[in-house]
């Protein structure tokens, strides 16, 4: 069977990484499914556990509660213990910062090589994963012993539908595992979440991204207004992040977030390889750039050569005329 590890983001609903994890297990990996829901005390972990328990193929859900945030040291020890008892053929989690921090540590405890950033399951041991910032796709086969510990990309599995018809039992951690949660190697101190009313970048239907040509943090507000009109999220190129115009968690690219919305609008972004790797699977790509030679036009479905400072207000006004109100 397959052990799924799901991060409770707080809302009680499956986020993009959790959904991709469950889709991958339900459609592509051996059954039954056992799920571990990592949840913060008082943050809706029970509700999330119920959502997961209702999915087809799920036999058991274990809730691992923690005070404060998640730490890889205790969580990997808990999972190691659960793997020992359940003996899954696969352990899968999302390619989020939570999963990337955790999965290799767990794999190491099991002395097996992890397979990260999987975008396709060819068969139970064979997977496709992007390398070189998505400029090549590598098909790899796990030939080690022990379970396949893998992380999956939300953009690759997130759009498939989850089947619900299950009624799995929900358990709390046993005493043995609870004791492991008390590892004293690390301590969670605090967090600074980016506050936003907008949808999360990796789950948004529309993403409006800006590059260095925006010139200032102040000008990024123009993108926010456009995003709000379309109910979308705001992203940025690494160049804009490096120039200090916006925080790193807005970065779309190989070293930032990988997104695949229905509509991606790249504004003042030249289209460096590392940025393209983060958005080229979007359904429709629009590029707005002053430089007609910018590489972004080579992959955009619709390109508009022009000065963003005149194009954006016009675009906003035209959208308003179509009924997309300004907020």
């Amino acid at each position: 069977g397959t052990l799924c590890v799901v991060e409770g983001s707080g809302a009680g609903e499956l986020d993009a990484a959790a959904k991709a994890t469950m889709v991958c297990a339900q459609k592509h990996l051996p059954k039954p499914i056992w799920a571990v829901v990592a949840s913060r005390s008082g943050a809706g972990g029970e509700d999330l556990a119920k959502s997961v328990a209702g999915l087809e193929g799920v036999e058991k859900v274990v809730v691992a509660e923690t005070e404060g945030g998640f730490l890889a040291e205790p969580l990997s020890a808990v999972l190691h213990s659960l793997v020992g008892k359940q003996d899954p053929s696969h352990v899968v989690t999302g390619s989020s910062t939570f999963g990337k921090n955790l999965a290799p540590r767990l794999a190491a405890l099991l002395d097996c090589a992890p397979v990260t950033d999987v975008t396709e399951v060819v068969d139970e041991k064979t997977f496709v994963r992007p390398i070189y910032a998505g400029n090549a796709l590598s098909t790899v086969k796990f030939v080690g012993s022990g379970p396949v510990v893998m992380t999956v990309r939300a953009t690759a599995f997130g759009s498939e539908k989850l089947e619900s018809s299950g009624e799995a039992e929900i358990e709390q951690l046993g005493e043995e595992e609870k004791a492991l949660m008390g590892s004293n190697l690390s301590e969670w101190v605090g967090e600074e979440k980016t506050e936003s009313e907008r949808p999360l970048l990796d789950a948004a239907r529309v993403v409006i991204s800006g590059g260095r040509a925006l010139k200032s943090e102040e000008n990024f507000k123009m993108l926010e207004e456009l995003a709000d009109q379309l109910g979308g999220a705001v992203g940025a190129s690494r160049a804009a992040v490096d120039a200090g115009m916006c925080p790193n968690d807005m970065q779309v690219g190989q070293t930032g977030k990988v997104v695949a919305p229905e509509l991606y609008v790249a504004i003042g972004i030249s289209g460096a390889v590392q940025h393209l790797a983060g958005m080229k699977d979007s359904k429709t790509i629009v590029a707005i750039n002053k430089d007609a030679e910018a590489p972004i036009f080579k992959i955009a479905d619709y390109g508009l050569v022009g000065d963003l400072f005149t194009v954006l207000p016009e675009l906003s006004a035209k959208l308003e005329a179509l009924g997309y109100e300004k907020k």
């Binding site: 945030g69 190697l185 690390s186 101190v189 967090e191 925080p247 790193n248 968690d249």
Partner: peptide, 14 residues
């Protein structure tokens, strides 16, 4: 201080 998906997180490591 760690860069996580929705912001920053701080941990104290032994």
């Amino acid at each position: 201080t760690r860069e996580v998906d929705d912001g920053l997180e701080t941990v104290s490591l032994k």
